[in-house]
Design a protein around this nucleic acid. Sequence first.
DNA 1: TTGTAGGCGTTATCAG
DNA 2: CTGATAACGCCTACAA
Lengths: 337, 337
Amino acid sequence: MRSTMQDVARECGLSMMTVSRVLRGQGYVSAATRERVVEAAKRLDYELNVLAQNFARRRSGLVGIAAPFAGLIGSHYFGEIIRGFQRAFEDSEWNLVLFDILSPSFDDGKKLAGLFRTRKVDGLLVVAPGAKDKFLDTFSDLQFPLVVVGKKVTNAKVCCVSCDDRHGIELACAHLHALGHRKIAFVGGPLGFSVAQERERGYQEFSRAKKLPIPPEFLQRGDYSMLSGRRAGEALLNGKRRPTAILAANDMMAFGVMESARELGVSIPDELSVAGFDDLPTAAERFPSLTTVHQPVVEMAEQGASLLRSWMENDHTPKRKIVVPVSLVTRESTAKR
Amino acid sequence: MRSTMQDVARECGLSMMTVSRVLRGQGYVSAATRERVVEAAKRLDYELNVLAQNFARRRSGLVGIAAPFAGLIGSHYFGEIIRGFQRAFEDSEWNLVLFDILSPSFDDGKKLAGLFRTRKVDGLLVVAPGAKDKFLDTFSDLQFPLVVVGKKVTNAKVCCVSCDDRHGIELACAHLHALGHRKIAFVGGPLGFSVAQERERGYQEFSRAKKLPIPPEFLQRGDYSMLSGRRAGEALLNGKRRPTAILAANDMMAFGVMESARELGVSIPDELSVAGFDDLPTAAERFPSLTTVHQPVVEMAEQGASLLRSWMENDHTPKRKIVVPVSLVTRESTAKR
DNA sequence: TTGTAGGCGTTATCAG
DNA sequence: CTGATAACGCCTACAA
């Protein structure tokens, strides 16, 4: 980049301020003057120096995405999240920067706040399904634009947008129950994840409400991976009391359960119904296709990002908590008992 | 953020320059002076203003990741890419910014160069498996740090790091051939992807070298999705000339082929061998587990990012093209004919 | 080893 | 509607 605003101002015989106003489309400038400026800028191949602009405006133009890379970043879920963020910002000058909260430099939550204080970012979108809530408590007193996406945060002061996980599981349970299933097993996620806790609670509450007993072996737990689902499926299908339906806390584990059924020659859905949670693209593509709970991840992320955006742009704190609804997608893997 | 370097300088009775040197860990400062500065900074809760620093240094501290979001961003592949990038920069002050080259604002390649000229980024990592090479030709004359990752670029001036796709397919073919297979079908990817072309060529060259005929119906093509693999599998297994082995250009399509086999009651690997490419985590977790070609995506991305980094930091143009080797992982889905 | 001078390119503020 | 002036907070280059 070569020429500066100074040059353009000289070229068209106007002041830098006028040039600035025109190029930024702000303030009152007469059409004729505007024309002159635009032409001069074009003649000189002028391009704005973003660095100088940011400095003068005291902002970075950056929105931080803080997430634990390990485990999250290759997932379909995170992809949808990013897509939602992007959608909320694509008509703006904001850009998205990635931060791995698991990296050594983020040993505590204060580092995140530091990103804002040092003006590395103007706001933060936190995607932290597995993090302890403590991590987020350090933000309670710091007032800067921050929205947590994908997880309900207990801290009353922190904004968040999440899906109604518990209700989703209840929908799936109700579906299986309506099909006549009474022996419904559950493969939960790791309890360190608040989302996993929510889903497990949904299962337990439904069972209690319907007075379905839960033998201890009916409550398996995996780590969200297909392999762990497969192991859980094996345990359930080989157990002395075999369930007629297995509900998994995510699709990957449901896929694992299906694999185990295949391995053991158990036919789905004739002998066993299986349901999941997430509605991955492959859930519809498998044979049999998987009944699952659909969560509108893109929309959720977009809402969160929009929240943050208005917070950053209008300097008013938006409302605190949003829960988006989920829905059940019925497919081939579940059938009447 | 409140206090500035000026304040710290006053507080410890030294010049701003000395403070700057200490805080940045550059230049010669006596231990005693250093101590004074550090203490003063701590007393004043001083934090560097990154915006001012960047402005003065004429750099943004940002590395752009340019990728087509649709289709790529939720994939395991892209996750590994990001992880590799992160690894190359985690001990540095560089941060990663995301740009969607499919967004309306990137209607041509020049916009990417604009990111550099306006100092939005100091360098660019391009992950564009599907983009036409034309897109990249616009960079040929622009000399700024840019590395293409995951794809071989024909343009001689552009740096790139990619895997040896063709050889990977050849490895898989050779494996099947060694097991006695002579009727090997191939499910290729969309030809718009140069990687897909490479893999398909590998199949064709191997077949030619071994004098294996390729009936037209043996060359199927999908869109990298599981569903398209399933459809291809159905076509192949229902065809009049059934292959004894099916090799897919990626794991997802190989999974689809496996689904179709299940649906049609074809046993793997007894009646049909199946192999893929990518080595997704689930390739090992499925039943049967999938023989596939492993590509070291993280390492490839890390190499690309390191290349870019030294280019940005040392201002010397690194060597142009790197091809990393791939390897075959033999699992349950392939067996003797 | 420390300090001085000058500038980086834009925007805010206020006056005309 | 347009312009002059003053920051913005740090770094580079050079001097002492």
